[in-house]
């Protein structure tokens, strides 16, 4: 017996968002969904008394028009690696997946997804910001998949490809599209562009099964990343978060071996490493809801508003992994959140 409505059984549409092309694409894609008109997306997304995890059993789609701000300075928890002019934007709120360690469950009270359909306003904001920055040495970097997985939505709402088209018109703009999806095939026909960084988060199969059960399995992600590398895209591999458990080093050693057996490391732009970490307020909010993932019952330390594994254990683990990774890549290509 199927207990739950399928995802996107209902689409909530802001009155002012209906006529945008992206809304029309979504409504056509889900032509059998029930459409409910709302005055403002927050009327549904920010309701009091929502249960993130229950709503994840049957996510609803909310089509809305975002107002300013369209651009935010990057969080300290993102690996900026000394690069100036790093920003993120939020074309979509929330993610198709529901990884146990994801900060979104602490950031948003709703498990539903909001798609902002006024994409040109986001793009215009970037152009305005670029005009105000000194970009003679470094480009402006924008993560467009920070609060979502935009590539995972590509077969529903083709935003990633539209953003790639936009980047091609901007010389000093680099976008990062971080994903766990296996949908590279949907942008395979596009000509790779050096200012588009496709980042795949990869985890050992054991971790993917336990903590990323709603995302595609490790092998599918690896295949997608490999195809992207071979097609000539700039690809970043994100080994983040590293989850520490008994025997973790052996598992990760085997995992990295598998990854670089498939993907030529010299063709990878860089890799990132980081352990589980979360803004303390988000962490506390999740804990209050009695999460069922064991991740939330380990011993962590709180420092500078961030919950994470203690500094000593964290540094030792990441250094061990860095050493291991340096067999495949120069250390200059290994970016670490310590």
């Amino acid at each position: 017996m199927k207990y739950f409505q399928p995802n996107f059984s209902h689409i909530y549409v802001e009155r002012g968002a209906l006529d945008y092309p992206l809304s029309q694409i979504a409504l056509k894609k889900f032509s059998k969904s029930k459409v409910i008109e709302v005055d403002h997306y927050k009327d549904i997304f920010n309701r009091t008394g929502q249960d993130f995890q229950v709503q994840k059993k049957s996510m609803k789609l909310i089509l809305a028009k975002k107002t300013e701000p369209f651009l935010y300075p990057a969080s300290e928890m993102v690996q900026e690696f000394g690069t100036p002019n790093v920003y993120y934007n939020t074309p979509i709120l929330n993610c198709l997946y529901n990884c146990d360690y994801c900060f979104l469950q602490g950031m948003y009270s709703s498990g539903n997804m909001v798609v902002f359909v006024n994409e040109s306003d986001f793009m215009d904001a970037i152009k305005i910001k670029m005009a105000s920055l000194n970009l003679t040495l470094d480009p402006m970097v924008v993560s467009i998949s920070y609060n979502t997985d935009i590539m995972a939505m590509e077969n529903i709402i083709p935003m990633a490809s539209r953003w790639i088209d936009f980047v091609k018109t901007q010389k000093k703009l680099l976008i990062e599209i971080r994903t766990k999806s296996a949908l590279f095939s949907l942008i395979k026909k596009m000509i790779p562009h050096e200012n588009v960084l496709l980042s795949w988060t990869l985890s050992p199969e054991k971790i993917a099964e336990e903590f990323e059960s709603t995302a595609p399995p490790f092998n599918s992600r690896l295949k997608s990343a490999k195809e992207a590398v071979e097609a000539g895209w700039a690809v970043r591999l994100c080994f983040d978060p590293i989850i520490l458990f008994d025997g973790w080093f052996e598992i990760y050693s085997q995992f990295l071996h598998e990854v670089f057996r498939e993907i030529n490391p010299s063709k990878v732009r860089d890799v990132t490493l980081g352990v589980f970490r979360m803004n303390k307020d988000f962490y506390k909010r999740i804990k209050k809801r009695e999460p069922t993932s064991t991740l939330f019952y380990d011993n962590y330390e709180i420092k500078d508003g961030v919950v994470s594994i203690g500094k000593k254990e964290r540094t030792e683990s990441l250094e061990k992994l860095e050493e291991l990774l340096s067999k495949y890549l120069p250390k200059s290509k290994i970016l670490i959140w310590k």
Binding site: F4, Q5, Q55, S58, K60
Partner: peptide, 24 residues
């Protein structure tokens, strides 16, 4: 799937998680 209070003009949206097959 949507409730409007005529007095206050407030809208309320019940969650629709269960696959009830009922009309809405």
């Amino acid at each position: 799937n949507k409730i409007k209070d005529e007095n206050s003009n407030e809208n309320y949206f019940p969650d629709l998680i269960v696959n009830s097959k009922l009309l809405e």
